[in-house]
């Protein structure tokens, strides 16, 4: 019996007075990689943020390993959208990765040599060690995303939330990120990824959650990743340009 890592029960939240999440309930098992898919404005990012307490919830309950976020947060890593930060900030790649460790370093202390080494190792894993001292605005979009991934790796969490890690990155970065995700999975870690590219869902993820303000379907990719579920989730928001069995969908999102 694989235990539940996440339990979301009847969660709802609003964004600027519009209700974007309604009665969202689902469970996530340990050691799985789940894609959260849905059209633009479906509340995918809001769902993650609400689960992590970064966005106020209206109703419902979220627990991690049967305890609230507060007690579980040291075991949770979060990769925000790349566009959510100012890349002109005066700092370098290594420093950004070190930030992932700030929660563990504690008050009134500066990062030690050991922390820097940990950060450097995470950068190495993402193939970014030669860019460690590069100012972050001098990195390409894919490299910036790798730095964000490295920061999450440095956190050494059990559970990862990633908000569109594959959006707007080059092919080699996508490959590098997926290799890391698979490695995380084989180490028994659990990963939730907000994803926008339906084509790659069956290849990359073993679970999928269809979200459009409420949960339309959730389960193993083989079972729930069907044309029907895609169609009901995306509603009129998409066009089929596919041939045969391929799910090639152009939604209005990205």
């Amino acid at each position: 019996m694989v235990s539940s890592v996440i339990n979301v029960d009847d969660l709802s939240a609003s964004y600027q007075k519009n209700k974007v999440l309604n009665d969202v309930s689902f469970e996530v098992k340990e050691g799985t990689i789940t894609a959260i898919v849905g059209p633009n404005g479906a509340g995918k990012s809001t769902l993650i943020k609400t689960m992590l307490g970064l966005h106020p919830k209206l109703t419902g309950n979220v627990s991690f390993w049967d305890s609230p976020f507060k007690t579980a947060k040291k075991k949770i890593g979060y990769v925000p959208q790349r566009g959510s930060v100012d890349w002109d900030f005066p700092t370098d790649a290594l420093d950004v990765v070190t930030m992932g460790l700030y929660g563990k370093i504690g008050w009134f202390r500066i990062p030690s040599k050991k922390d820097k080494e940990k950060a450097m190792n995470a950068l190495k894993k993402m193939g970014m060690e030669s860019y460690a001292h590069r100012q972050i605005s001098q990195l390409s979009g894919g490299q910036q995303q790798r730095v964000f991934l490295a920061r999450a790796l440095a956190q050494d969490a059990e559970l990862y939330f990633m908000d569109e890690p594959l959006a707007g990155v080059d092919a080699s970065t996508e490959k590098a990120i997926m290799t890391i995700l698979k490695e995380l999975k084989s180490n028994g870690k659990t990963v939730l990824v907000v994803h926008h590219d339906l084509q790659t869902v069956p290849e990359y993820f073993d679970h999928v959650l269809f979200l459009n303000k409420k949960v339309y379907a959730h389960g193993e990719t083989e079972e729930v990743f069907t044309k029907d579920n895609i169609a009901t989730t995306y509603g009129g928001d998409m066009q089929w340009v596919g041939k045969g069995d391929q799910y090639v969908i152009q939604s209005t999102s990205h």
């Binding site: 992590l52 970064l54 949770i76 930030m99 700030y102 929660g103």
Partner: peptide, 22 residues
């Protein structure tokens, strides 16, 4: 000086800072 790293992280990436419990 006392909160140097907290100033840095809350200025650069407030969402990450909050998720770390800062």
């Amino acid at each position: 000086v006392a909160f140097y790293k907290e100033w840095k992280i809350t200025s650069f990436d407030a969402a990450l800072a909050a998720s770390l419990g800062i």
